[in-house]
Every structure is written in C-alpha cells, then in structure tokens.
Amino acid sequence: MTKQEKAAQILSDPRNQQEEIKALQDTIYVIGGKWKLPIINSLCNGNRRFRDIERSIPGITTRMLSRELKEMEANQLLKRTVTPNSPVLVEYTVTDYCQSFGDIILEMIKWGKKHREKIRTV
C-alpha cells in the first residue's frame, strides 16, 4: 500500500484539520511524555515485575514509574495482575490494545536511529 493510499484510508475527504489535530492530541496524551514508550518497550521485552521494569529504564524514579503504570492501566495499555501469594506477586503485561502500537514504536525506533546518525554527521 502506498503512502497516498494509506493516507486516503485514514484521512477524511474533504480533510477535517480539527479532527486530525484532535486525533494527534489524543495519541500524544495516551503515549506522550518521557516514560510511556520506554515502559511499553520494557514490557514488550519481557519485563513484568515493577523492579524489573524500573531497572530496565535508566533515570526513571520509583514514584514516576508507579504513576505512569497507573495512568497506562487506566488507558487500557497494560494489565496489572495481583497474585495473593506470600509475598504478593504483582505483574504487568501489555494489552492487545497496547500491542497495536507495535508498528508505530518500530517506526519511531527506526526514525530515531536515522536521526541520531544524521545529527552525528553534522
């Protein structure tokens, strides 16, 4: 599928700029910020427990991770499962809804690598 065909499938005809901006703002609200995409990436790489996620993301604080996980759960990007063993086991997993970001995340990683290379050569 060409970019034009993909755009025609997604965008309305005639174009509705307000609708497009609102859709972009909704996306940025849900996955925006410094930590959400790294958290999704960590979960997709197999980290399920709080400490494992925390250790896999340099610079994130315990408080920030806790806040972001709660917000992501509210937006149905991840599922929190509590197993009442002794000690209690809490695990986080991405939802199918979150996995729908997979192609977007891969494209962002690809673009980020190209960008980093571009600014190194300047």
Rank of each mutant, 00 (worst) to 15 (best):
M1R: 15
M1T: 08
T2G: 11
T2Y: 05
T2V: 05
Q4P: 09
A7C: 06
Q9R: 12
I10N: 08
D13K: 10
D13E: 14
P14Y: 11
R15V: 02
E19K: 03
E20F: 02
E20M: 03
I21W: 04
K22L: 15
L24A: 14
L24R: 14
D26S: 07
V30R: 11
V30T: 11
I31K: 00
W35H: 05
I39N: 00
I40D: 01
C44F: 11
C44V: 08
G46D: 01
F50I: 14
R51C: 08
R51K: 15
D52Q: 13
D52E: 11
E54L: 11
R55I: 09
I57G: 01
P58A: 01
P58K: 05
I60C: 03
T62P: 05
T62A: 09
T62L: 04
R63G: 10
M64S: 07
M64E: 05
K70C: 10
E71M: 06
M72E: 00
A74N: 12
N75Y: 03
R80S: 15
V82A: 08
V82E: 12
T83N: 08
N85S: 15
V88G: 13
E91Y: 07
E91V: 09
E91I: 10
T93W: 14
T93D: 09
T95R: 02
C98R: 03
G102C: 12
M108S: 10
M108I: 06
I109W: 02
I109R: 04
K110T: 09
G112V: 07
K113C: 13
K118I: 13
I119W: 11
T121E: 03
V122E: 14
V122I: 15
